[in-house]
């Protein structure tokens, strides 16, 4: 078992959940909320060496960073995404004037 903490001021909970999902075939992750941090308890599906656990925790932390970046890109581009989709369907018969 490994315990990883993420500062609440820096990390988004959704990004942590997505990283946990990505490794669902390797670990069961229990995420809890503390005063200043999110704590992730990682329980490995099969027994692995301490070294392998440390390597995994490092990979998991990188993935949490990537997922958080994805979340912020998604927020930053939400308006454009909606605008493009509206534009795509604007001339089809699927969208009718009321």
């Amino acid at each position: 078992m490994s315990l990883v903490k993420f500062d609440k001021k820096v990390y988004d909970l959704n990004g942590i959940k997505k990283a946990a999902y990505k490794f669902i075939d390797k670990v069961a992750a229990n995420i809890s909320e503390e005063e200043d941090s999110f704590e992730v308890e990682l329980r490995f599906s099969r027994e692995i060496s301490k070294e392998a656990q440390e390597h995994f925790v490092s990979e998991f932390t990188k993935e949490v960073l990537d997922q958080n970046l994805r979340e912020s890109i998604k927020k930053e581009t939400e308006g454009y995404r909606n605008l493009i989709l509206a534009h795509v369907f604007s001339k089809t018969s699927l969208v009718k004037n009321e």
Binding site: D66, R70, I73, K74, E76, T77, Y80, R81
Partner: peptide
């Protein structure tokens, strides 16, 4: 400004 994109390592 960004337009929507996704990324993989």
């Amino acid at each position: 400004r960004f337009l929507p994109f996704r990324f993989n390592r």
